[in-house]
């Protein structure tokens, strides 16, 4: 691994410098992860007196459980919807903003600030707008003959959490698209213009392909965001309902572990989630490596 040409000769000091970080990592990351791994092979009886080693029983049970499979499906739909929507809107806005010479900074400031809004608060804001009895959007929808009620209708609830999660994520994607667009040499676009390509054609044949590293990176980050960071959105609004329509995997781990107290199953779910994060991280870093070779 890369380091300096010359290094300090101290033998003990580096360990002392690393100690705080490694202590926190071991105590609060590695040890609990190992615990989750271990208890995913165990079952605790109803009173918590006895634990038995059950091999993969927790896993097989999970994958036979329609509720868990449904949660998987919900997570996929939710993540893809949030990622695609927020990426698409952010790209559109970023392309429009880079066209602006003077006003692009002002627009950026106005678009960027929701980054600082907590997912839970984003959820509550939209929960309020769509509130069936007093929400202004629900009111407008009613005028159009749509009877909105996210407390009862599973689709309405899903649309609500997707909108709230997307709203918060646009700012992040916008910033990265802006950075990506600004790093594309201006001369390329000028060359294409001289070659007779109009703005739309230039975008699809020059800008979009050159932006693909950014887009790919953001895709991974957005899926991770939608899968994990949106816990606050769900918990603060629908709490997984109605009828488990918005119960994403992370919410289910929490619910089964803390409310349902089904520790073995919750641990197995944790391990599955870990595998997903590891998979996503590997994909992301493989891509970084490839980009470096460019």
């Amino acid at each position: 691994m890369q380091g300096k040409r010359t290094v300090f000769p101290n033998k003990v000091l580096p360990y002392l410098l690393l100690l705080p970080q490694l202590a926190v990592t071991i105590v609060f990351f590695l040890w609990p992860a190992a615990q989750a791994f271990w208890s995913s092979f165990q079952r605790e009886d109803a009173f918590g007196f006895k634990t038995t080693f059950v091999w993969f029983a927790n896993y097989t049970k999970l994958f036979a459980d329609p509720v868990y499979l449904n949660s998987f499906r919900t997570t996929v739909i939710f993540s893809l919807a949030v990622s695609l929507l927020s990426l698409g809107i952010a790209l559109l806005l970023a392309v429009a903003a880079t066209r602006m010479l003077r006003s692009s900074r002002i627009y950026s400031t106005l678009i960027v600030w929701p980054y600082a809004v907590a997912p839970a608060i984003a959820g509550i804001l939209w929960w309020f707008l769509f509130n069936p009895s007093i929400g202004i959007i629900a009111y407008v929808l009613r005028r159009f003959g749509i009877d909105w009620n996210h407390l009862v209708d599973p689709n309405d609830a899903m649309i609500l959490v997707v909108i709230a999660a997307t709203w918060k994520q646009i700012s992040y994607n916008f910033l990265f698209f802006m950075a990506g667009l600004q790093s594309i040499p201006h001369s390329l676009e000028e060359a294409a213009a001289i070659d007779g390509a109009g703005p739309t054609k230039r975008f699809w044949t020059i800008i979009f392909p050159l932006l693909s590293p950014t887009t790919f990176y953001l895709m991974v980050i957005n899926v991770v965001y939608a899968m994990f960071d949106t816990f606050g959105v769900i918990h603060a609004t629908t709490e997984g309902g109605p009828a488990r329509a918005t119960e994403i995997l992370v919410y289910k781990v929490y619910f089964d572990g803390f409310v349902g107290l089904n520790l073995g199953s919750s641990a197995a779910q944790s391990v599955i989630l870990m595998a997903i994060v590891i998979g996503l991280t590997v994909v992301q870093f493989r891509w970084v490596e490839r980009r470096v070779q460019y």
Binding site: T25, I26, F29, P32, A33, D229, S270, M274, V277, T281
Partner: peptide
């Protein structure tokens, strides 16, 4: 070891981390 923390967000190890704390 530090790198691995990237792959272990709180959300995936809720119960055991709570127990440690």
């Amino acid at each position: 070891m530090i790198f691995i923390t990237l792959m272990l967000p709180v959300e995936v190890r809720i119960v055991p981390t709570f127990q440690v704390v």
